[in-house]
């Protein structure tokens, strides 16, 4: 780019001042404190006691719960991101096609996004219930015998995933719609002239054109899912048999139920490294196939 940006160092940092101060105050200092605490035993009340790497060693080599929670988190993330992104993409493509009632559909699918998890989780605990749940009642009416979702080790996580997708699908859908809006119509016209049917148009025009947005949605959803806490806290408390205990929930338990704050901080840093690694590699890897205009 030949054009010159407006250039001024001091003004730049003046504009950034609130943000930088915020970074230091609400993130930098707390993260440093947490890092220091991750090398201690601390029950929140007494004095932290330095234990070196013991928390990390325990977590990585001796704590079976840690590995189970990592697995659960990966399960939740894979399920929610795959299902959520696919559904959002298909819904966006469908809504994009219709003209009458488009706004209405957009609003309806976005509705759960704006609601508080506190409200939604209580409602869904009830809907999922084996004996009173509307979900099973109507599933049985159409001949599907459904499990007792939240009380079944195999189905509790799928239930949480379904609820999370229901709650969250509207957001990526709107983002995809925005992307679809931006694809020049000439591409489709050209494809039509080449005789491509709808499926092929979707595969060969829509998907490649949307790929940067898909990457964005997937990466941010994975980051969000890895930190999933609210649904678990409010719907299952990690049960039954720990089958829905995610890493963020385990972190919370360590801090405020077990009173092992040093451990909680160590978990946070394990999570931090995992997510950092994931983000870095996914961006590296996908740069090969993501289509930038």
């Amino acid at each position: 780019m030949a054009r010159k940006h407006y250039r001024n160092e001091i003004e730049g940092y003046l504009f950034l001042a609130p943000q930088l101060l915020g970074l230091v105050l609400w993130l930098g200092i707390p993260m440093l404190a947490a890092f220091a605490l991750s090398f201690t035993h601390w029950d929140l009340f007494g004095r932290p006691e330095f234990v070196g790497l013991r928390n990390y060693i325990n977590l990585l080599f001796h704590d079976r719960r840690m590995w189970a929670t990592l697995f659960n988190t990966a399960y939740f993330t894979a399920g929610t991101v795959t299902l959520g992104t696919t559904l959002a993409l298909l819904l966006a493509a469908a809504v994009h096609q219709v003209s009458f009632g488009q706004t209405l559909f957009k609003s309806i699918y976005f509705l759960p996004v704006i609601c508080s998890m506190t409200a939604i989780a209580a409602l869904w605990r009830w809907l999922f219930s084996g004996d009173f749940g509307l979900l099973n009642l109507y599933l049985e009416r159409i001949g599907i015998s459904a499990p007792d979702w939240l009380n079944d080790t195999r189905f509790a996580m799928p239930a949480v995933i379904l609820m999370s997708v229901w709650k969250g699908v509207g957001f990526p859908m709107i983002i995809f719609l925005a992307g679809l809006h931006d694809i020049p119509a000439v591409y489709y016209e050209a494809a039509e002239i080449d005789g491509a049917d709808r499926r092929r148009q979707f595969l060969h025009v829509t998907l490649p054109q949307l790929s940067p947005i898909i990457l964005f949605v997937v990466v941010t959803s994975v980051i969000g899912c890895f930190q999933t806490f609210d649904q678990i806290y409010m719907m299952t408390s990690g049960g039954p048999m720990g089958s829905t205990r995610t890493i963020a929930f385990y972190l919370f338990e360590n801090a405020f139920v077990f009173y092992k704050f040093g451990n909680a901080c160590a978990i946070a840093y394990v999570l931090f490294v995992l997510l950092g690694g994931f983000t870095h590699f996914s961006i590296r890897l996908t740069q090969r196939w993501v289509h930038y205009q």
């Binding site: 009830w126 219930s129 084996g130 004996d131 009173f132 007792d148 939240l150 009380n151 049960g239 039954p240």
Partner: peptide
């Protein structure tokens, strides 16, 4: 006794 529900007393 119902097995389902057993884990949740509220309902």
């Amino acid at each position: 006794a119902p097995g389902r529900q057993a884990l949740q007393s509220q309902l």
